[in-house]
């Protein structure tokens, strides 16, 4: 008997429904399916929440993932809100916030990163402390730090490349790269609370390489999809040749044209 505690019903089915809801949302606004996208999205979220509440961290990898995401919600939300506060408290033409909030925004964004650093030196919750939960949490942290280091380097270099004395921007992003690099170096040298350095090495060689392959696989699938659409459109037949006007239709057109020409002449 299937129940909401079954990962196929409580986790993977809602994910599939979310994809279907996205498809419905993309339809024309006059299409009745467009109205279904909202309720299906809501049902999917309810199913996932019910699955999360009916299971515990050690039950399945899906519950462990939900525990990791819940664990990371705080720092990620802090980073996101901090970036928004910093953006809108600057010289923003839309919805400006008080200018005094700008340093606070930057502090919040950097605070999110340091929160993740603090998580590495404090005891993790039970749901992500052992087994697959620990692997999922480790993979999350390693991917986050690796992408942070690489993309902050890219963005910092871009600021330098753009010229116009963007030193402050480049320095801030360099700081982000260095902070990420220090955290990466620390976990690889000394490990973190509850996970030895050897565990991080194993996560690096197994899960990071798996995820690099995954990134390539995702890009290939998107390219294959584009190729499929291109092939389908190329194979589409030419539109039907329209039959020439009949004598009756020609007479109607002729009458309309004459009428307009006469009106113009009289004016």
């Amino acid at each position: 008997m299937s129940s909401l505690a079954d990962p196929w019903i409580g986790f993977w089915l809602p994910l599939a429904l979310l994809c279907l809801a996205t498809g419905f949302w993309l339809t024309d606004r006059k299409d009745s399916r467009k109205r279904l996208s909202g309720p299906i999205f809501f049902v999917s979220v309810v199913l996932i929440v019910a699955f999360g509440s009916k299971t515990r961290g050690g039950d399945s990898s899906e519950t462990a993932l939900l525990a990791v995401l819940l664990h990371m919600l705080g720092p990620v939300a802090l980073m996101a809100i901090g970036s928004l506060v910093a953006t809108f408290s600057g010289p923003s033409p839309v919805g400006p916030l008080p200018r005094g909030l700008r340093p606070l925004g930057f502090l919040m964004a950097m605070g999110g990163l340091f929160w993740i650093g603090w998580m590495l030196i404090s005891e993790p919750p039970d749901a992500i402390a052992n087994g697959i939960g620990e692997t999922i949490w480790g993979a999350w942290v390693e991917v986050f730090l690796s992408i942070l280091i690489l993309i902050a380097t890219l963005a910092g270099s871009f600021c330098v490349m753009m010229g116009d004395e963007r030193h402050k921007e480049a320095l801030t992003l360099a700081g982000l790269t260095i902070a990420g690099g220090v955290m990466f170096n620390e976990i690889m040298h000394n490990g973190s609370e509850g996970l030895l350095a050897a565990g991080w090495h194993q996560i690096h060689w197994e899960e990071m390489m798996f995820l690099i392959g995954g990134l390539l696989g995702t890009l290939t699938a998107v390219l294959a999809f584009i190729a499929l659409v291109y092939m389908a459109e190329k194979r589409a037949p030419d539109p039907d040749v329209i039959a020439p006007l009949s004598e009756e239709e020609k007479a109607v057109v002729d009458a309309v044209l004459r009428l307009h020409l006469e009106v113009e002449e009289s004016e």
């Binding site: 600057g90 986050f144 992003l173 798996f210 995820l211």
Partner: peptide
């Protein structure tokens, strides 16, 4: 599940870097 975990981590890191970059670039005097 590990694939989904990696995707969310990647999105969080991209959001942090580009969010800060946006805040810095729009704040230029």
């Amino acid at each position: 599940v590990i694939l989904l975990s990696g995707i969310t981590a990647m999105l969080a890191a991209l959001g942090l870097v580009f969010g800060l970059l946006l805040a810095l670039v729009t704040g230029r005097e």
